[in-house]
Amino acid sequence: MFLINCPYCGERDQQEFKAGGEAHIERPKQPTELSDDEWAEYLFMRKNIKGVQFERWNHAHGCRKWFNMARDTSNDEIKAIYKIGEKPPTQ
């Protein structure tokens, strides 16, 4: 449980948000040409990092907009919040 600074609404309780899992997993551009292995990689395989991870969040009980977050999963500390479409921070 922690506070999240929604880029559209400001700081709110984490309860209002829905975690959307790992970010920057690109949808295959040509799905018909994908092998089973590539589909498995896209659908199921996750880095599940212990440390700083880029992930998607949705302000489900607020503005309902999606955004990205860099969060340290070992202590739940939020390092950065950035909008969908923006590149992840390098630091």
Partner: peptide
Amino acid sequence: TDDYISYSQKGSHQ
């Protein structure tokens, strides 16, 4: 479980 990935061994109060 909480719905977010975490290794913190702390769950949410709610």
